[in-house]
Write a protein that binds this DNA or RNA. Structure first.
Lengths: 214, 214
DNA sequence: GAGTGTTTTAAACGTATGTTTAAGTTTACC
DNA sequence: GGTAAACTTAAACATACGTTTAAAACACTC
């Protein structure tokens, strides 16, 4: 019964490294050590397999994200203050780099996520957006509350910039093939998160009245 | 003799909208109104066609980028001051949104560029990186000079964040399919450039001693 | 205006893809 | 221990892809 798991693991690696279209069913099943027809038997289709791969890992990430964002919102609501921007950013960014237990295979999945943000192929993107929608909506709402002096348009686009930077960071961090580019600039996940929060915090808050007055 | 141009135009649109692999030779030639075999006759292969599509538009962009960046460097060198960060950013970002004459087809090509930054398929990415390498190297050098208090690692990663944000901005701006997401937040290119420069400027400069002392 | 080199055409080639089939094997339950 | 369900297998299917071929159409020079 671990055939399904075997397939999921192999598919995760190949989808992440080669992309959805380029990862063939034959390569996936061969890497999993199972028969070609088993993907269709267990999952129905290649696209359903991708869906399963994404759902398996993304569910805990999104649950953690949502929980942390909701806590920030309710805390700000109680005390009647604006939510703290760096705190929001960290709640949004951190879970994507692993849910803590630093499981095997996270690098590959992170790579898959990083891709899907800007994926050529819309199959992966659509699935991801569907899974992320609740967290993304709450995120946008909190950003608006944290940046009350900014127009909706400004908040929206700065949020898009954040997503772009985050996606790039994830891919650079987890994808083989960037080693030569990174050379001496390697950074562990915690450092990367810190740099991202600092970068996006300054970027999003620019032009905002700082300190106190609300 | 404008068969080649016809093919290039059609390929640009389809590569941008569907991605390199998903855009088939048959779809390209059909859209161009020419025979299937003519791509191989005129360009040699599908990959060579992609190369030609990219080279045609990217050359002027990169020339403009390089010229502006070089001018910033030499100006800073003469006066023996650090180059100005927003100026650097604008020189790097602006040309990607069009070389001024706002030609037809730019939206599609911009989409193609935006994708290639994080493209699943490495074919497009490799070609793009090769074309952009000189400008990117100079950019990194100038950023280091503009942010003397930052470590090489910090500069490198903030530059990567910028690339991610820029790629996302380009795609959101030029790709159909984001219309529903953008809804009321539509922004013209000039506004987008301004927001990007402001966002990246604040993000990259954060933690840097500001004003004067050097 | 015959002849040469270039361009275009329709058809076929070889290969790879995701999926389905039908027979085989294992597993679990009464 | 027999039976039904779940699972696995090898093979074939249908389609799509990029590329090649050989003949036809065109363009241009002498």
């Amino acid at each position: 019964m671990d055939t399904k798991e075997e397939i999921l693991n192999a598919a995760e690696v190949l989808f992440a490294r080669a992309g959805y279209h380029a990862a063939s069913m034959r390569a996936i099943t061969e890497s999993a050590g199972v028969n070609l027809a088993l993907v269709n038997y267990h999952f129905g289709s290649k696209e359903a397999l991708l869906e399963a791969v994404i759902a398996r890992r993304l569910r805990p990430v999104n649950e953690l994200r949502l929980r942390r964002l909701q806590e920030i919102r309710s805390r700000a609501g109680e005390r009647n203050i604006s939510p703290d921007l760096p705190e929001i950013l960290r709640a949004y960014i951190e879970p994507v780099f692993g849910t803590g237990e630093s499981e095997r295979g996270w690098a590959d999945f992170a790579n898959l996520i990083g891709r899907a943000f800007t994926e050529t192929d819309e199959t992966a993107q659509k699935i991801l957006l569907r899974h992320m929608k609740p967290a993304n909506q709450l995120m946008l709402e909190l950003l608006g509350a944290a940046l009350p002096d900014l127009s909706g348009q400004e908040v929206f686009w700065r949020y898009q910039f954040l997503i772009g930077a985050l996606g790039r960071a994830i891919r650079m961090n987890s994808s083989p093939g960037y080693e030569r580019l990174k050379k001496n600039f390697e950074a562990d996940s915690e450092t990367l998160i810190r740099m991202l929060v600092s970068f996006a915090g300054a970027g999003m808050g620019s032009g905002e009245r700082r300190e106190g007055l609300r």
